[in-house]
Design a protein around this nucleic acid. Structure first.
Length: 489
RNA sequence: GGUCGCGUGGCCGAGUGGCUAGGCAGAGGUCUGCAAAACCUUGUACGGCGGUUCGAAUCCGCCCGUGACCUCCA
């Protein structure tokens, strides 16, 4: 496996050469969505980034097992630990089963992921299906003395843990700071320290999602599922764990603590965190209620949107920024992406029309290697795309016979463009509209034909009138050497 | 208050001690009855003030602005 893939490791805060624990196998875990709402742009970014990592590692020849979980229990509505589960809340309000809520949002998430051309993960475990494993982990932590029971609930003893291990190793926090600034929240009377976190919570009578255990009828804590499911499917230590930057603390910090407390070892070699999508320079999130769902983006139904955007435009938009930078949403930025993507796709489509020469005036090898250098450099998709656009310029010049290429290089150019664009970056050709538009199309063709006759007779006032009136209906006519083309606005 | 970031040309967004990232928009050109589209060409920007250096937007210091995390959040 000859490559120099480097990844930024949040744990060491620097780029490191990627060396799997057990080549050629790679274990990759990414925190998936909490299914109490439709997926928004932020979820798309996370999914797309790890999709590209999955694709690229696979391309490099690794056998990747990619686990992306679904969080469907254990997320609480209020600040306190004894708040209502968010999924339960929706179930109660809508008079449906909690698992019905979960299923509904999972279905929608899958639909959106398919639209974005995100490959399904190897395993997609749900927290609710791994209660046994989570309880098992709690028992281990209890046995090792890093947790305590109060009234049927189990809490992780951060103070005790931090005497032997480094709590804060990932997020750079220390418990003195946490002590002094942790907010005063209700429902913390059971904890020994405010920074302790729940491993198991006793369910109150009105709680409808709960499971039997030796401690109480209850439900698992916030951070346990990823530790338990990661261990189950990828082993006690695995290669890469990813998620949004907002999960770094406390979620991932707690995960490390749980793994160390139960198994004695930290479970992850490389931690990767993607940055947030912002809107008006503020984080797009459910809690700020400033998010745009993917469905809204695709059909243009959110009031802030000037138009609808194709899923591939969204994917391209996300790839234009490096994953560790914030990316600011705006209509203008998306429209720019849409046009850029269209140009890229058109050029790839046109490669087949290039006529090979005896000699090449373009250096395909250099473009190719620079593109891979960019991808190897912590998945710099932005720079990789810039070389794709270099190639686009060459393709267009070749089409105009202003540059030359031999048949071997032409084949190489085609393969290179398709490999990067489709296989690794996961872009695809715009979907054709599904509805039957035959009559409409035939009518437009007929009008175009009549207009051409008028033009042939130099009856330009008629032909221009037709073009103007078509434009008003949203049909744009373009006269080219090869004839008249039309497109919908 | 603590921790960690960021501030790049009209917009988005890479990068980095000396060599034009790229996309969109704009400008010029090719094409065309005209227009549009398409294509080609084109932009010398890096918050402020000091310092280090032959040389800094890139390193260091200070200041200003701004964001994330410290509650659930991708």
């Amino acid at each position: 496996m000859k490559h120099k893939l480097t990844l930024y490791n949040s744990l060491t805060r620097k780029k490191e050469t990627f060396i799997p624990i057990n080549t050629p196998f790679v274990g990759l875990y990414a925190c998936g969505p909490t299914v109490y709402g439709n997926a928004h742009l932020g979820h798309a970014r996370q999914a797309i980034i790890f999709d590209i990592l999955f694709r690229y590692l696979t391309y490099l020849g690794y056998k990747v097992r990619y686990v992306r979980n679904i969080t469907d229990v254990g997320h609480l509505e209020n600040d306190a630990d004894d708040g209502e589960d968010k999924i339960e809340r929706i179930a109660r309000l809508e008079h449906i089963e909690p698992m019905e809520v979960v299923q509904q949002y999972i279905n929608n998430y899958h639909k959106n992921m398919k639209q974005l051309n995100v490959l399904p993960p190897s395993i997609e475990p749900q927290a609710s299906g791994h209660i046994i494993e989570q309880q098992e982990m709690i028992r281990k932590i209890l046995k090792n003395g890093f947790a305590y029971e109060v009234n049927g609930s189990i809490y992780f003893d951060v103070e005790k843990y931090s005497k032997l291990h480094n709590y804060g190793i990932l997020s750079g926090r220390n418990i003195d700071e946490l002590q002094s600034y942790t907010r005063e929240l209700s429902g913390q009377h059971e904890k020994r320290n405010p920074y302790d976190f729940a491993l198991w919570k006793k369910a109150s009578p009105e709680h409808i999602m709960h499971w039997q255990s030796e401690w109480s009828e209850g439900y698992p804590g916030w951070h346990l599922e990823c530790s338990a499911m990661g261990t189950k499917y990828l082993g006690q230590t695995f290669d890469i764990h990813g998620g949004g930057m907002d999960l770094l603390f406390p979620h991932h910090e707690c995960e490390i603590a749980q793994s160390v407390a139960s198994n004695g070892t930290s479970h992850v070699k490389y931690w990767m965190h993607n940055n947030m999508i912002t809107i008006n320079d503020q984080k797009m999130s459910k809690s700020l209620n400033n998010f745009i769902t993917l469905d809204q983006l695709f059909d243009g139904s959110h009031p802030i949107l000037k138009k609808s955007f194709d899923p591939m435009t969204i994917r391209f938009f996300i790839l234009q920024a490096h994953y560790r930078s914030t990316l600011d949403f705006s209509n203008e930025a998306l429209i720019a992406s849409e046009k850029g993507l269209k140009r890229l796709m058109k050029a790839i489509e046109q490669i087949k029309n290039i006529k090979p020469s005896l000699k090449s005036s373009v250096d395909i090898g250099s473009l190719e290697s620079q593109c891979f250098i960019a991808l190897n450099d912590d998945l710099n998709t932005s720079v990789a795309l810039s070389f794709l656009f270099e190639a686009v310029k060459h393709i267009n010049l070749l089409l105009e016979n202003k540059e030359t290429i031999d048949s071997k290089d032409l084949e190489r150019l085609k393969n290179f463009m398709e490999l990067i664009t489709f296989d690794i970056l996961g872009l695809k050709v715009f979907e054709e509209p599904v509805e039957d538009k035959k009559l409409e199309n035939d009518l437009i063709e007929m009008i175009v034909d009549l207009r051409l006759k008028a033009r042939a007779g130099k009856n330009f006032s008629t032909s221009d009138d037709i073009r103007d009136r078509m434009a008003k209906l949203g049909i744009i006519l373009n006269d080219t050497k090869e004839g008249t083309t039309w497109e919908k606005q």
